[in-house]
Nucleic acid binder design. Structure first.
Length: 543
RNA sequence: GCCCUCGUAGCUCAGUGGAUAGAGCAUCGGCCUCCGGAGCCGUGAGCGCAGGUUCGAAUCCUGCCGAGGGCGCCA
């Protein structure tokens, strides 16, 4: 509905015009809203992309198309212009923006911005997957929140999503961890290559006398992970234990399958995967000459298991694991799975700033910034929003002081504040006896100011942004959209002309503006909701 | 040496092959007895370098320069 009607009207008119002129349009005619409003409300590059079929320049073709369009006299269109190298620009009546408002009300917070594009597809999103040998640190936070937001975006576009956390609960790092705990409990230094963090000493102090140190430490670390993730609103559907792969025989089964498919060979007393056959730099060892598996082997079995449960896999890995992408995809191909259905996303490092100083992280040198400390300092909302501000392809600078501040230059604050302002207006109106009525009863044509219409224009873009953000696994795109809406609201709010409760406003105007207030509020609350950030009704923190 | 990511305004960052490359902060200049000034409006300034593909490149390709990360029968 709404704007979509306009788009379909224009597309259909363009198809007709192309037919009159004698060119074949592409399957999907590009129709976009120009960044510069001087270029009209809608624009198409049709003349440029089809000019090769035409005897003349793109502009000449545009002329011919416009002549055909004007002869057909398209509904809602006020003006058609040709600009630049051959763009055809449409100016349409503002009525489509009122449809955007109505549609926003109909969809509400739980439906606005959501689509059904992914219905019928199951996606497994694996993220965090941190070793249970210590607390989560600030670097884990980025992957944790990114993975959760990607999962939410996929849900918002109709996919069935499984959030999964893989636990490396066997192997030598667990032994090292237990030895480090035991050493600290006995008052000694951890062994060579052991874990040096302060948390080892802290946790060792709680270590009961007569207990299995490894199992106790495992439970302690896992509890830490669960707690801090819970504070951030991250809930996993599956916590997948590496040990369970041993117990179920899944690792041996995967090796057997690879052997049957002749994808492995024996050499130098080891078992090798023919990963070079599938684009890897070199073949990889799966079983070492001492009979133990390498790190890769259980992981291969694990991914094979995930493939049996989902149509698409998404992995969120830290930058230090990018070198494993090629071998894992090769292993999946060797097992007969589609390597393109495994989408590995790598998050670049986070530089954490505090008081203008960079805080260094490093698990084995003892000076880690725990994710818990970040959450305690800036709160769950600011932690999520700030991590999501930037593309994970770039290194990030996370300013703790800014994220915790109640200033407009703090994006999470200005965004939430915009929502609170709208709520205050609605509450204030109600106190004055001016309740918002049914949207159907309001005269929306009273909304004519540019700042009012700008809010509706931004609201219109929500669905395509959510779709794009989900497709690109790029939550920061939705963050940018929410910030854009908040910015439009904050500018509108400050403009005296736009006031809802100004003296002299007619009851009809108040009603129309209250409808706008609610639409903008729905947009902010829906966007923040998908991102897992709360939409507060008030920003007051002191009571 | 090879692989991955990045390089856009003084700073932090946006930018699905499209038109005059955008925000925020900082600078400078205005506004403000107001639905919450924890504010608003305006201003100047930029695509690392060199080729290529294209009607059109910040975007795609190649090379170079620079930053970070990775290159074990470790995990």
């Amino acid at each position: 509905m709404g704007g979509l009607v306009i788009q379909e009207t224009l597309r259909s008119a363009l198809v007709d015009a192309a037919s009159v002129v004698g060119v074949t349009p592409p399957a999907e005619i590009t129709l976009e809203r120009p960044a510069n409003t001087d270029h009209g409300d809608w624009s198409t590059n049709l003349a440029m992309v089809t000019s090769k079929q035409f005897d003349g320049s793109p502009r000449d073709l545009a002329q011919a198309l416009v002549a055909a369009l004007q002869a057909a006299s398209v509904e809602h269109v006020e003006a058609i212009e040709i600009a630049g190298p051959g763009f055809i620009n449409f100016r349409v009546t503002d009525a489509w923006l009122y449809d955007v408002l109505i549609r926003t009300h109909e969809l509400g917070v739980d439906g606005f911005g959501r689509t059904t594009a992914g219905v019928g597809t199951t996606v497994n999103v694996e993220f965090v997957s941190a070793n249970p040998t210590g607390p989560l640190h600030a670097g884990h936070g980025r992957g944790a929140i990114y993975g959760d937001a990607v999962a939410a975006l996929l849900e918002a576009t109709g996919h069935t999503v499984v959030r999964e956390n893989y636990i490396n609960d066997r192997g030598v790092q667990m032994q090292t961890y237990a030895a480090s705990l035991a050493a600290r409990a006995a008052g000694d230094e951890p062994p060579e290559g052991g874990y040096m963090g302060q948390y080892i000493s802290d946790w060792a102090a709680d270590l009961p006398a007569d207990t299995d140190v490894l199992e106790w430490g495992y439970a302690r670390a896992l509890q830490d992970h669960r707690e801090v993730l819970g504070e951030l609103g991250i809930e996993f559907d599956v916590w997948f234990s590496e040990r369970s792969l041993v117990e179920s025989g899944a690792i041996e089964a995967a090796l057997q399958t690879l052997r049957e498919r002749e994808m492995v060979y024996d050499a130098d007393d080891a078992v090798w995967l023919r990963s070079t056959d599938f684009g890897d730099d070199k073949d990889r060892v799966l079983v070492k000459n001492d009979g133990e598996f390498t790190y890769l082997t259980p992981d291969v079995a694990y991914h094979a298991d995930k493939f049996s449960r989902a149509d698409q896999l998404i992995n969120v890995w830290g930058a230090d694991h990018h070198g494993y992408i090629a071998r894992m995809k090769a292993a999946m191909a060797a097992l007969g799975n589609d390597p393109d259905a495994l989408d590995v996303r790598v998050t670049q490092m986070v530089r954490l700033m505090r008081d203008g100083e960079e805080v260094k992280m490093g698990k084995r040198i003892g000076n880690i910034v725990e994710l818990r400390d970040v959450v305690d300092e800036v709160g769950a909302d600011a932690t999520r929003f700030t991590y999501l501000l930037q593309s994970v392809d770039s290194q990030q600078t996370f300013d703790l002081a800014l994220a915790a501040s109640a200033k407009m230059e703090n994006p999470v604050h200005s965004t939430q504040y915009a929502h609170a302002r709208l709520c205050r207006i609605a509450a204030k109106s109600a106190e004055a006896g001016l309740m918002r009525g049914e949207v159907a009863d309001a005269d929306l044509s009273l909304l004519v100011l540019d700042r009012e219409l700008e809010i509706l224009r931004v609201l219109f873009g929500a669905e395509s942004i959510v779709e794009l953000a989900a497709q690109e696994r790029a939550p920061h795109r939705l963050v940018n959209w929410v910030r854009e809406l908040a910015s439009a609201v904050n500018s509108w709010y400050q403009d005296d002309e736009c006031r809802v409760l100004a003296e002299g406003n007619s009851p009809e105007l108040v009603q129309a503006r209250l409808q706008l207030v609610e639409a903008a509020r729905i947009g902010l609350a829906a966007g923040l909701g998908i991102l897992g950030v709360s939409a507060p009704e008030s920003m007051w923190t002191d009571e």
